[in-house]
Design a protein around this nucleic acid. Structure first.
Lengths: 214, 214
DNA sequence: TAGATTGTTAATCGATTAACAATC
DNA sequence: TAGATTGTTAATCGATTAACAATC
């Protein structure tokens, strides 16, 4: 594996999709695949696939193609799925519950350690095997357990203050589900947004523009 | 408003963010803004903002800038937020519940008509004011009410068959939350994916690559 | 060996940025 | 009017695609 420097965001955003397709092929018992066949399945060009992968190394073999289990493992490494990251969830509402119950973290190789909320009605109750803890204790928890990632499934009004506290407590990646954006954090923690409303608006745009253009 | 043809996906994906920032400015009582100030707030170039907006029309005024309420309304139109779309949700689990309880649809100008599920445990129960209906009845419901959009918060194994049925029933936009992808549909309905796992993997990649590069 | 398919360089295409005349 | 800021054209930059020699 090469030392990848300055990979473009366009490439990075395609990596999980490659990983998903390779996982599916593996599940179906496939052993090898050419960039050509993969390109047809994914609806992109074979050139792009080879260019993308060669940012990280030469994982294929002339005349053969790519070995699926091997390439999948390489992608897992590249994506950091083998980095044993530790995560918590702040906000045990419907979205936080979804992340727990659909095993989103474990399916990404991340260990979910705890779930926090601010509401007295929920604190102490069980959520998919986790006892919901008081949000006030999250900061100390992160310091003690060296938490890497925090999912913010809290209202927009609370997201920034929570992120600032946990940034101080050593969390270096935030997965933000709240509407609105979190300003740059002191310790430089990353913020990765899931803007559901933006996503739905994009769908609306496509529907409207399709109607016009036919 | 111009007749926009072949707007690039890069531009489209930025539109909801413009809309969000303008809404925030409006909430703070701001009346006008220049592309320069907006560019500083959003962390992009003023050139890009002007180029993006001018795909759709000349909404600004030399020497003045942009009128915020006016530009926001234009963007609402462009994004289809005023198109009175009708939607349903298939899958009343945690994710479906989140979409209902956080008012994701109404905040996008879309009317949520009904929620469906397959589980006898949930059918008939209340979810944020909606009585959960049997998923079998979704097809007929869509025909009768001319549903435009269906959110698919069902397991991956069911997503494709549900989409195929509802495509036949006239639904022309799917908001797919299931892992995995839905193949092209007969009637050409659009599929817009929210791949939470892909999103989390992207965050992981950034964390890993940051650690390396410093 | 002959055929297949990669890795990689070069060509093309598209998106972003810069510059500035137009004009409010 | 003078200053500010747009809309738009031109220049730059980056990403995608095509082509092909290398090689399994």
């Amino acid at each position: 594996m090469k030392e990848p420097r300055d990979i473009s965001l366009a490439v990075i955003n395609r990596l999980p999709r490659y990983y998903r397709f390779l996982s599916d092929l593996l599940r179906h018992g496939r052993e090898r695949i050419s960039s050509k066949e993969l390109s047809e399945r994914m609806g992109i060009t074979a050139s792009q696939i080879r260019q993308d992968l060669n940012n990280f190394g030469g994982f294929g073999q002339q005349g053969y193609g790519y070995n699926i289990p091997m390439l999948r493992d390489e992608l897992a490494d590249i994506l950091g799925l083998t980095a044993s990251y530790k995560a918590i969830i702040i906000g045990a509402g419907n979205l936080g519950s979804a992340l727990v119950n659909y095993n989103i973290f474990s399916r990404t190789g991340i260990e979910l350690l705890a779930v926090f909320d601010i509401s007295p009605d929920i604190i102490g109750s069980d959520l998919g095997g986790f006892v919901v803890r008081h949000a006030e204790s999250a900061e100390a928890f992160c310091r003690e357990h060296r938490v890497d990632i925090a999912a913010l499934t809290v209202p927009r009004s609370e997201a920034t203050s929570v992120a600032e506290k946990l940034d101080e407590a050593g969390v270096h990646g935030f997965w933000n589900f709240s509407n609105g954006e979190i300003p740059p954090l002191k310790n430089g923690a990353l913020v990765h947004n899931v803007h559901l409303i933006d996503s739905l608006m994009t769908l609306c745009y496509k529907l409207v523009s399709e109607k016009k253009d036919g």
